[in-house]
Design a protein around this nucleic acid. Structure first.
Lengths: 210, 210, 210, 210
DNA sequence: AATGAATGAGTGTTCATTCAT
DNA sequence: TATGAATGAACACTCATTCAT
């Protein structure tokens, strides 16, 4: 694929679609899909509203594009290279660190993906949901492996996977880059909690053994 | 058609405000605040749009009313009576069971309270946030007590409280009343996970002791 | 039907729907349905565009209303009282005079009814077409009677009915109230032509007998 | 993909103007000038909207081109060769047959020419109207000749010419190629009616002589 | 001769809200 | 307490047209 893949030509304004995506991402994350008008997006891009329709047939298509490409990027980024994932080779650790890092880097995409699902038309919704389940199943498989090896003790791996993802995904809601906790520290805290939540010998064991 | 047409409630129309609240709750939860019009609410209530303004000065006030009263109801419901909370007297158990039960019973209120925060005007937002922090601080206090007593081992009780609440609050997103898991079973699963996540001797303890 | 049928009250603006109809009639006739905007209608009525929607759910409904009520009024007006129809008791004469008079009085309705058929949605189109056929069948029945009695000589009464109506309906296209020909004179001219076109012994008879 | 991609016509695209005319004709006839967009025409031609402006300076010019060339083609086609006109040498017969045949062959042009007059700018309107009057005057002259010779009895030849043309021009509105009546049969029926409508001794003569 | 991107005005329609009744 | 009619701003989207390439 040598030259064929190049854009037709780096024409003036040929990056408008990308700028529309960026503006819509920012505005949808901030105010919600339904509360953002095409006029606002156009104005943020620095273009007339009608120009948006040269790049996206409807407002809904912008949302769909953002959500689908987020899920695909997320899945494409997995698995992370070993050196990215840090010193630990434990799969659950790798997943937790990966998820936190990725979600703190793409806060707006994440936020939209969780908030605007109901504003997707049924067909796009189904596509996004399928990707989401693919992602969940990565964690689920890790939990199942750990359960088989006896490292984890989990009543329902599907529920546990969702619980863990919910816990991790809540981070960007309150995390502030210049807050008291570094991203690394947060990673450590959550890693510990996640490990504990699926550990083979939790506190309850000792209680129950009383 | 003499009496049959009377409303079940004593004075017809006297409960309109309540019906507005109920309709708005349902519609906001389903479609989002910004995507629901006063006309839709009115139509659901069975009244003309202008009639809504006899009960709420603006659309925004309906949202504020729903969110504030939800937070206040939630805080009023705590602490649950002992017999409601079940056999366990452990405060963390009580909180987890209470949270799951309450949130599964009031799914729409919960959903709105997490989704529509950004659609609140700053002043109302601050009020709701204050209530939310009060609620978080209940759990935070429990975690701190456990940490002092040595029962829990927690790096940051504030982070842990938020992590646990995020994990629990995700349940209504996927829980189906006629699904394979009963509410009781879910309670048990999450209880175990939460206990593990804060347990004094998790899996990592043994690892670290290597 | 003593009091119940009265309008709720002769409120201010309660005649807006009628004024919308009148404005739309005038504007559609002048510029065509597709070329007239709701804003133009509203401005002609002296109201904001959004106010139109209190009276007609869509622009299409205004057109439908105009066309259907025109056809119904036309059919309701038939048959004319004897004294209206003039001295002649011949049914064809009565029809021709009636048609010309009615169509010269309601030029705008007539014009719209012929020009804007294709802008009707299929369902409304079918309704209007049904009324049109009912009207054509009045003339067709007259022609059939005349044919049976031997007064007329007609190859196909359906075709003849349509031909006559087309001929008559073209009048308002060029008729000017202050032109050289009075409505009465036009009536006489067309009456003669129509009679001739269906006469039992036309010119061709003598030609053919050569 | 060497040669297969070439258009059938000698130079690809060289006939675009003609294809624009054909598409616009079809679409204007079907939906009306005002309801057809340049985008629709372009899409029907298989070209981008901006390409249309290489061939016609404005949308209005397409309409003007279609209407003027129709009227000119119609006038150019008159008089028909004798053998085309059929066995009859009577000028009125020749005209009626010619008109019906021509109008059944060019239904779309005819339809547009009658429907879209009001969408022409005044200047083009005047041009088309002049052509129309030239055409009417052909029939008017025939009627005047017949009147002078005593063959016809006509109160107003201008009115009669318009009446006859209106009657004939209505045919394409209901004629269906695969309907029960052949074009030839329709010709005969209308011919008879037209003859009768201007005949020197119509039915009324005998009635009045009673 | 054709394209892709843009414009600025305009489309039908909906919005939250007001107000006399 | 409810209504019907109105407002003025806004909505997503389309329009005919332009222009650099």
């Amino acid at each position: 694929m040598p030259m064929a893949e190049r854009e037709p030509s780096p024409r003036k304004g040929s990056r408008t679609a990308a700028r529309v995506r960026a503006s819509a991402l920012k505005l949808f994350a901030r105010h919600g899909y339904a509360a953002v008008s095409m006029r606002q997006i156009a104005s943020d891009v620095g273009v007339q509203p009608s120009a948006l329709y040269n790049h996206f047939p409807t407002k809904q298509d912008i949302l769909k594009d953002l959500m689908l490409s987020h899920m695909r990027d997320l899945l494409d980024a997995w698995p992370p290279f070993a050196d990215e994932a840090g010193q630990s080779a434990d799969p659950l650790d790798v997943f937790v660190r990966f998820h936190i890092r990725y979600h703190l880097q793409r806060r707006e995409e994440v936020f939209i993906s969780y908030m605007e699902l109901r504003n997707l038309e049924p067909e796009s919704f189904a596509e996004v949901e399928a990707e989401r389940r693919r992602y969940e199943s990565i964690l689920k498989a890790i939990l199942e492996d750990g359960q088989k090896s006896g490292a984890y003790r989990i009543a329902d791996t599907g529920v546990a996977a969702r619980a863990i993802i919910a816990m991790l995904t809540g981070i960007p809601n309150w995390y502030r880059e210049n807050g008291p906790l570094s991203a690394d520290k947060i990673e450590e805290i959550y890693l510990e909690m996640v490990r504990g939540s699926v550990a083979a010998t939790p506190l309850t064991a000792s209680i129950e053994s009383d």
